[in-house]
Design a binder for these strands. Structure first.
Lengths: 248, 248
DNA sequence: GATTGAAGGACGGGCAACCAAACCTTTTCC
DNA sequence: GGAAAAGGTTTGGTTGCCCGTCCTTCAATC
């Protein structure tokens, strides 16, 4: 039939991005909860020893049933990230010390470049928007974090934790909850990647110098300079990874 | 007990991003499929009259059961976006003409700034990475799209469709499937926002001039210039929206 | 020292989403 | 006229998730 041929022809007028038919795999509420809480703990956003909200309150905030939340907490407790005490005045607490982080999985390593690309986008957007919207109080707090960073050049674990606070803090300064969430997500992924890489104090010092230049540019509301400094900052880590990891 | 007090104190050493305890709502596979296919159709990535892969193949590609896919196709068929013909040589086809797009929902309009922020991040990342990685063939194809744009200044619907092809095409040039997906997603959201806004030919002409400057910067591998041009390009639409929509 | 209240812990019923595997119907092509 | 290829239908089972209820523990309080 003629109409059939017409239709088939119309299909070929465009090249279709393969992403349209890519697998659709939705995480379960349980998985997402473990991921969110676990990442927050690993990133130090939930400090060791900190108390989580009560189960009955937390499940309401997360919008899930208590049994689902308990599944997640059980998983986190079995992996040693949290522990619970019963009775009045009890609760669920972040473990102290934290369990050793497990090495990055092969598929994580295989997709490291995608992770960096994702991070690049988030950080560039944050840099530009922070330059437009950050309040003075935000920046003052971030300056203090930068000072902390200079004081922890010898201790990579502590440095990395403050580093995360700085980047997440800058995202918060954009007043975009979506960007904050994206930032914590990518920082979690990045932490997995760089945990096992040596970072000599000199490298950390120059990295923090970039932080300071970044904050200065944001303070002066020079968006493009902030973006440029940020991109240089990220390329540092990316080059290190490119040298150590297989092509991805 | 003393240890209890210690623990509680430890909880307050950091300000916790509220995003950590934000609701976790996972879309169902059905919803996500409708969204993906529907967006691809609305954006013109699946051209009117185009044939979708056979159900048995498509559900395999999407990683879902056939019954779930059929739910989604039924929804899209009821909304008039696709239609199906039976028998050998039959199949599921994108409707032609497409049904009229429905006006943006109130909550969509309320979150327009978050949408723009998201888009900003994606587009800046794409601009920078495209400048690093785009091949000459990619750019030649995109130049042709820009020519199409110049030829459709009088017809906003056609212009917008080519506009999407340009932005998505640039994302494809980064070789990051994640960024392509993020780009189609945000373009879908943006389309809902700007569909009902008048775009005089002069505005479209200057917008496409920015496209050309962007492509030129990418071709010369001048990443920062590409980022700057892109940010100016986006601020154009953002200012228009800011003038027409309530504060968000 | 008894009481109480706030916390974690455990169980079962029920619903909705999803999957798997068939089988049916229509249409075209050989 | 039959084989093949497509959408359409049915059935049954599994899992994730929610909701409600009750139990257990134990610091705080009286």
């Amino acid at each position: 039939m003629a109409r059939r041929a017409e239709r088939r022809a119309a299909a070929d007028t465009l090249t279709l991005p393969s992403a349209v038919f890519a697998p659709v795999r939705s995480q379960t509420a349980f998985e997402e909860t473990v991921d969110r809480l676990g990442t927050a703990i690993k990133l130090g956003l939930l400090a060791p020893g900190a108390q989580l909200p009560a189960e009955r309150e937390l499940c309401a905030r997360l919008g899930i049933a208590r049994s689902t939340l308990r599944q997640a907490l059980t998983a986190l407790s079995q992996s040693g990230h949290v522990f619970a005490t019963r009775g009045r005045g009890g609760g669920t607490f972040v473990a102290d010390p934290l369990p050793p982080t497990d090495p990055p999985s092969p598929q994580m390593l295989a997709r490291w470049r995608e992770t960096c690309d994702q991070r690049l986008a988030v950080e560039l957007g944050v840099a530009l928007l922070a330059a437009e919207r950050a309040e003075r109080e935000d920046l003052d707090a971030l300056d203090e974090v930068a000072a902390t960073l200079d004081a922890t050049l010898e201790d990579f674990v502590a440095y990395r934790q403050a580093d995360i606070r700085l980047h997440v803090g800058l995202a918060e300064a954009t007043r975009s909850t979506q960007l904050v969430r994206a930032m914590t997500e990518t920082q979690g992924a990045m932490t997995d990647l760089i945990a096992y890489i040596a970072h000599p104090p000199e490298v950390l010092a120059s990295s923090n110098a970039q932080h300071r230049r970044l904050l200065a540019a944001v303070r002066e509301r020079d968006a493009m300079r902030a973006v440029r400094v940020m991109s240089e900052h990220l390329q540092g880590t990316e080059h290190i990874l490119a040298g150590l990891l297989p092509e991805g």
